[in-house]
């Protein structure tokens, strides 16, 4: 739970408010395709590298079509990478079976599987960020709900997301107050921390009580109704079908190797 970069969540809302063919696809179509993508990517043998490369096309196309700033995607990936990199970097040390030869260089299985882990990481994380970036949490959750996500959980996601900004602002104000009086000392003693966070907690609970009243005042009776009227159109069907076919082909045949052979064959 070491995420600290919450404020730029709002940036992803900005991306999602854009308009592009990728934005206009139904959230369900994008969610299904992205999930299939991730499953297929993860289903490769652990030392596979070259066959994974063509899969980059999916997040690249989604990101480019919807004009999501690619630098920010990379920055997010970098922030999230330590665990996968940390665990993966042992592979080269632990698995030294020679597995491939390129020219005069012998590559061990460990390096291949490490490269594979990094590539998988980039692919899966990028695809997920692109999905959210061109859909937005709200349409995504509404879509998932229609795919069977329990309503309680869908509503929970929406409320959490909504109050993230409000409570985070309160937290930021308190932090500023503390920093102003801390005289350069960054961290608090446990006792002061307990009372600060405790205050924040009580304020959050009061907030929940007031929100509940506002809901009741507008006729809330235990069910949050939404206006979602998105429709699954033929385009969405083509998109899902096209993606699944492409993923299947790229899973069955190593396209990179095929292209390589073709080029080398032509050159020779």
């Amino acid at each position: 739970m070491e995420s600290a970069t919450w404020p730029d969540i709002g940036r992803m809302d900005d991306w999602a408010r854009g308009d592009s063919p990728a934005h206009r696809l139904d959230a369900r179509a994008k969610a299904v395709a992205t999930l299939a993508f991730i499953v297929v990517v993860m289903s490769f043998p652990r030392r596979e590298v070259s066959a994974l490369v063509p899969f980059l096309l999916y997040p690249v196309v989604l990101t480019s079509v919807s004009r999501i700033p690619i630098g920010e995607i990379f920055r997010k990936m970098l922030v999230a990478s330590p665990f996968a990199v940390f665990v993966g970097m042992f592979n080269p040390l632990l698995d030294r079976q020679p597995a491939a030869v390129v020219g005069t260089i012998v590559i061990s299985g460990g390096w291949l599987s490490f490269a594979s882990i990094l590539l998988r990481f980039v692919l899966t994380v990028w695809a997920a960020l692109a999905l959210v970036g061109c859909t937005g949490i709200y349409r995504l959750v509404a879509g998932l709900e229609r795919l069977g996500l329990p309503r309680v959980f869908a509503v929970q996601l929406l409320f959490l997301y909504r109050y993230l900004f409000v409570i985070a602002n309160e937290g930021a104000r308190m932090k500023r107050g503390v920093d102003a009086r801390a005289g350069g000392k960054k961290a608090l003693t446990l006792r002061v921390y307990g009372s600060l966070i405790g205050h924040l907690l009580l304020r959050s609970m009061d907030r929940a009580e007031r929100v509940h009243r506002a809901m009741l005042a507008r006729g809330y009776e235990g069910r949050v109704a939404t206006l979602d009227r998105s429709r699954f159109r033929a385009d969405d069907g083509f998109f899902v079908f096209g993606c699944l076919t492409a993923f299947g082909v790229a899973r069955a045949w190593n396209l990179s190797a095929a292209i390589g052979r073709l080029v080398l064959g032509a050159a020779a």
């Binding site: 600290a4 993230l164 985070a168 924040l200």
Partner: peptide, 12 residues
């Protein structure tokens, strides 16, 4: 849920 996020901004 939002509180948990916000609380993580403060350290002791």
């Amino acid at each position: 849920g939002a509180f948990i996020f916000a609380a993580q901004m403060l350290n002791f």
